[in-house]
Design a protein around this nucleic acid. Structure first.
Length: 196
DNA sequence: GTCAAGATTAGT
DNA sequence: CTAATCTTGACG
């Protein structure tokens, strides 16, 4: 087996396969204000039309359009009247599967992230899907952006990671599916997932 | 047009 | 446990 898995083919696999492998990767966002980045420590897989918990379950809508496109793009949505969440589209085009990035370990631009979040606590800076988008200044403007080019990128992991599996957080349907993955012992996983 | 629910978070 | 806050999508 000599073929290398390119970034593009990496994403074009089932969300349940990509989600755990994304742990340890780095999410970077460059803005005029400065660069912010973090290591992915928590993810969840959403399996499109076959997954009752997915936004794509009832077919394509204007909001979920990018999930039905090719893999490697950002699906960012607004919810609860105050939060954005970011996903990586995975699988083959039309499948509408995606991986929700739920928590990061802060790396670059920590001061900027503190300012954007208005808090001092480092472990709570990016420990949740709504928190990390605020810290990296992600919103609707980045919806549909491909992760292979600046200013929003996903950089491969440099070392293997030890992770655990659990049911997904905050969903009503398909709550039994073990499709949440997180780095064992990381103090940066989301609070609700941690144990609450 | 109307309405309920939501892949969340912070605070009591 | 609940309030905050508002977009989306289903219904008609």
């Amino acid at each position: 087996m000599t073929r290398t898995l390119t970034k593009q083919s990496f994403f074009a696999r089932p969300a349940t396969t990509v989600a755990p492998e994304l742990l340890g990767w780095t999410l970077v966002h460059d803005t005029p204000e400065g660069k912010t980045s973090g290591i992915i420590v928590e993810t969840e897989a959403y399996m499109g039309a076959d997954d009752a918990a997915s936004h794509a379950f009832r077919g394509p809508t204007p909001r979920t359009q990018v999930m039905f496109g090719p893999a490697g793009y950002a699906y960012i949505y607004f919810t609860y009247g105050m939060h954005y969440c970011i996903n990586v589209v995975t699988g083959k085009a039309g499948g509408a599967s995606a991986v929700l990035i739920r928590a990061l370990e802060p790396v670059e631009g920590i001061e900027l992230m503190h300012a954007r979040r208005g808090i001092e606590n480092l472990t709570q800076l990016t420990s949740g899907p709504g928190k990390l988008t605020q810290a990296l200044a992600l919103n609707k403007a980045q919806n549909g952006h491909d992760f292979l080019t600046p200013p929003l990128q996903l950089l491969p992991s440099t070392k293997p990671v030890k992770f655990e599996i659990s049911p997904r957080i905050g969903i009503r349907h398909a709550a039994d599916k073990p499709w949440r993955f997180y780095i064992k012992d990381s103090p940066y996983v989301s609070r609700r997932s941690a144990k609450n």
